[in-house]
Write a protein that binds this DNA or RNA. Structure first.
Lengths: 343, 343
DNA sequence: AATTACAATTAAATCGTTTTAGACCAAATT
DNA sequence: AATTTGGTCTAAAACGATTTAATTGTAATT
């Protein structure tokens, strides 16, 4: 690869100092009293030689990399892909670059990704964490390293975070099912079960089932390894079906579960909502054109992204040294065909 | 933020030179004949002080950043999200970090993103380009800068690229429709129309329509600005419907078009495949559980990602100086319910 | 005893940028 | 005439790592 032109090249070919060129490039010419004519000369030469700053050198010298990290479990998941896109847009508008990392729900991989982000000196991290321990985040706090938890948090609110009200979402859903006349309600969730969103959704489920005095049936409440959803759901459902032990309704605790359940019900000839109702936690475009359309708990993806980014920027700009901001956003229930007993 | 420990800290507290520590850290201890005991001492101290290399300094000094760029039009699009995930996995396995950029089909934004990637000294770029001109890529070639075009290319095969056989895909689709008895076939595509994939899909469409002596009706062949798909499709379809001028089948030239068309047909009460058949270019999970299920041209996403990454790595490792590798992968037609006239 | 060889280690240059402290010169002030 | 001021500009250090060439001390060779 050809070597790039550097500040020094520009300075030399102009017979001025590197310092001067650097000042001009950074629009500090006026601040440092560089004459307008000189500034113009510098700019002309910069364009002539097609000078481009070496961001590595710059970041190395200044400590400002204009980069942030985003850690999620899987960037190809529709929910995180949307989050990523919003964060990327905000970052772009603010002159930042985003480094996205998928962790596959692995505690260890996440830690290593985090380590690399730190070594790369990103200025802050937005993370939907799969950690079981809060150690790494306590370390980050001790280092005064900017970070914001999104989606998943650690309950105690000791860290900056933007999450949604998972319990409320599930409670709305169960109450809706109840009003529609459903009583035998099952729940599909994933393991690892320590993931806060899943944990809270399950709490919401048990709470509202209890409140409504509905029976909690173990056979209907299953927990599937996150990476086996597509294989295990059909298996479970067909077992329930052959045992004539199907619930009247299922709430699926994330979009993958819901999609897999929908597909599987369809393949088994179990009709929605006639034979069974279905609700998804987390909405998706495709739930609008599936047949039937699927009732879903919609998360405010754009808001989550926006708030998280804002909080991170505040931390980076040191406006909130030592202050933690924990936000919980409300969700909406999008009622569609999959839960109307009447059909 | 607390200052990090550096090589110099480790060296000092051990009473050895920075050089020595650096050699050990990089596992070159043996190569440079550092005694085993010294190496052990260094490692112990490194762990004790929790030394982490500054990748910025390292990259700056060596020119190796272990980072690559990925440029796509929209990372939240399901197709690109999957590509991104595969590339990220491969990068992770090879010790690379990926910087993902969305361009919104903007020539200018893409150029600026590319500029930033270069300034950040990524070692190579994988790009699904929205450029109208090949200038930037000719510049990259001149600089011997590693890059691979994916998905979209520039026909001339002057650059390394991994694409799919778009014409073939469409031809398979049209022939399938023909065999099923459909004759009045429309096509929904997007603008900007210079995007190579779209362009080639349209060519495929016109070719096979001509080959089969089918009429090409302007009202059925529409081109929608990529960011207005969701608004414009319902409008067009309802117009066609009220004019009683609906085609018997539509091929949608990407997954967004297909989803929007499906949703809109449903809302208008146009039944698939009874009233109209639908084929999507680019498959999606949701086409399995929509009703009806949707026939789609499936792209080999994993293969595309794999080949692109391999080619990039070859370039980076300089095994192919000046050699360009252009690949065109075949697609598959997934026949589902949306195109069976019998139903 | 002088030279060579080798193993283990280090000094110093370097990458491209920013920034601090000061240099230089002409004009203004005393 | 000597000093101060202000406007432009520069020298040099620093950031944290890698790498080349050199150094040291000891053992082996002549």
């Amino acid at each position: 690869m050809n070597k790039k032109t550097t500040l020094s090249d520009v300075a030399q070919s102009l017979g001025v100092s590197i310092t001067l060129v650097s000042m001009v490039v950074n629009n500090k010419g006026n601040k440092y009293g560089i004459s307008p004519e000189t500034q113009q000369k510098v700019w002309d030469k910069i364009h002539e030689l097609n000078y481009k700053p070496n961001l590595l050198a710059k970041g190395f010298r200044t400590g400002k990399t204009s980069a942030i990290g985003l850690i999620v479990s899987d960037i190809s998941n529709r929910f995180y892909a949307k989050i990523a896109r919003h964060i990327e847009d905000l970052a772009w508008q603010n002159g930042y670059t985003v480094i996205i990392c998928s962790t596959d729900e692995s505690v260890d991989k996440e830690l290593r990704q985090m380590g690399i982000l730190l070594e790369r000196k990103v200025e802050g991290i937005i993370v939907s964490s799969s950690q079981t321990s809060t150690k790494i985040f306590e370390d980050l706090v001790a280092m005064e390293y900017p970070f914001v938890l999104i989606d998943r948090n650690f309950g105690n609110m000791k860290f900056s975070s933007v999450s949604i009200n998972n319990e409320q979402g599930v409670e709305m859903a169960i109450e809706h099912l109840y009003q529609q006349g459903y009583r035998k309600i099952g729940m599909f969730s994933i393991s690892p079960g320590y993931i806060s969103t899943i944990k809270n959704r399950k709490i919401g489920f048990y709470n509202s089932m209890q409140k409504l005095s509905l029976p909690i049936v173990d056979d209907w409440c299953i927990e599937i390894p996150f990476n086996q959803v597509e294989q295990d759901i059909p298996q479970h459902l067909s077992l329930l079906k052959s045992n004539k032990n199907l619930p009247e309704a299922i709430i699926a605790m994330n979009n993958n579960l819901a999609s897999a359940t929908l597909l599987s019900l369809k393949n088994l000839g179990i009709r929605i909502p006639r034979d069974m109702a279905l609700i998804s936690f987390d909405d998706d475009q495709s739930f609008n054109f599936s047949s039937p359309t699927i009732t879903a708990i919609e998360q405010p993806i754009e808001q989550i992204s926006h708030h998280a980014f804002d909080i991170l920027m505040k931390q980076i700009n040191n406006k909130t040294k030592g202050i933690y901001q924990a936000e919980i956003l409300p969700v909406k229930l999008k009622i569609r065909e999959s839960t109307s007993k009447g059909c």
